[in-house]
Design a protein around this nucleic acid. Structure first.
Lengths: 216, 216
DNA sequence: GATAGTTTCATACACGCGTTTGAATTGCAA
DNA sequence: TTGCAATTCAAACGCGTGTATGAAACTATC
């Protein structure tokens, strides 16, 4: 095998397996078998299992963040410096949702790997994860540019909720399908993004009316 | 040690450790050390590690579901058969949120254990987890009783989002605190419940405006 | 085509895991 | 007390893990 292809084979096999089964259940022997390389190749090319995971995570989080910021900046320049609130939230949750959901099996291992990574608290990831806070602050700033007089806490809560909804929709697709008996269409990703964006925007306004009790 | 106390010591030690560190990072030797019992006690009293986890999970999910349904029924009888929408959502997310958040260190190991359990996909839990769908359907039915003509899919989505927001708020408290620099008060649990309930209610109404995805 | 550097490979090591074992101890009824 | 079952305990077993080793195979430069 031509040298550097080994690295790539390991990386993509590891990413796919981790996305499917989680970190705890995937051994190095699983990875090298799937990648058709020797067991020692991981240690030779990456140093250790943790360093392999860390490299995967760093690479992927850079890519994800870049996608999000690209969408955000495109929306801001299109709006002459101020993006619409819809566009801001869509830039935040769209890339990951499109990467993870959708009909057929076009699901990206990368996006699903990131979801796994955000769930499992393994040391090499914990450290890097703090950067996401800075990333989110840029979205908070974008919203504040669009709504200069808005309450800061409400902005943070709405970002928090937006990610929560996107995240759980990806992670617990199965439960929602079972619960709704097919009434919720999980193949129409654009509609899902639109729904999450819409709810996130509503969440921006702190408890507007006492939220009509609507008894009956 | 008086026989049955051993069981309880193991259960509570295991629950606490699992809540703190997750299943993967807690060994049987950690548990028996914390519980001050012999290593073999776990196998003797529970059969295996997986059976211990399963027993914990079954017990706790019964308790959680009972709490939720009690709140729901109380709200329905108080409303003469039809609970307010607020009360329904509050019954769904309130118990867990109150168990996990709040000032001081009064956090319940039980609630945090359940959060962990819902994240990690270990075999003994996967099976039991399907019951939660039935549980959620009772909340969907309650909403439909309160809003007979409402779109079914919107009801399922709002329940899904309610749990997503509650769940992530518990799980990723740290990130929200860092992101908001203290602007979001995570000690006022009642306010958090109210906020999540309010947003969930807003989510009930399907995407008010077309919420165009705004790609440039 | 010989040689030095890189990459592969089979194998083994050390360790931690859940579980098992069988003897020692305890608790309790007769 | 005696006898028997229930429980505890120290020790070990078997297995799977990540990692290390050193020889073999490849690559590329001269």
């Amino acid at each position: 095998m031509p040298a550097d292809l080994t690295r790539m084979a390991i990386l993509s096999a590891a990413e796919r397996l981790y996305a499917e089964r989680g970190f705890a259940d995937v051994t190095m022997r699983d990875i090298v078998t799937a990648a058709n390389v020797n067991l020692s190749a991981v240690n030779y090319h990456f140093g250790s299992k943790d360093e392999l995971i860390a490299e995967l995570f760093v690479t992927r989080s850079l890519v994800t963040n870049r996608e999000r910021l690209n969408e955000l900046k495109a929306a801001e320049t299109a709006g002459g410096g101020r993006a619409s609130i819809e566009a801001i939230f869509a830039a935040l949750v769209g890339p990951t949702l499109r990467g993870c959901l959708g009909p057929g099996k076009q699901r990206s291992d990368a996006a699903r790997f990131m979801i796994r990574a955000s769930l499992e608290s393994i040391p090499p990831i914990r450290k890097i994860k703090n950067r996401e806070v800075d990333h989110l602050k840029r979205f908070a700033a974008a919203i504040r540019r669009a709504l200069p007089h808005h309450d800061a806490a409400d902005i943070f809560w709405s970002l928090h909720f937006a990610l929560a909804m996107a995240h759980q929709t990806i992670r617990d697709t199965e439960r929602l399908e079972k619960l709704s008996d097919g009434a919720c269409d999980l193949d129409d990703v654009a509609a899902i993004v639109a729904r999450i964006v819409a709810v996130s925007i509503l969440a921006l306004n702190k408890t507007p009316q006492p939220a009509r009790t609507a008894t009956r």
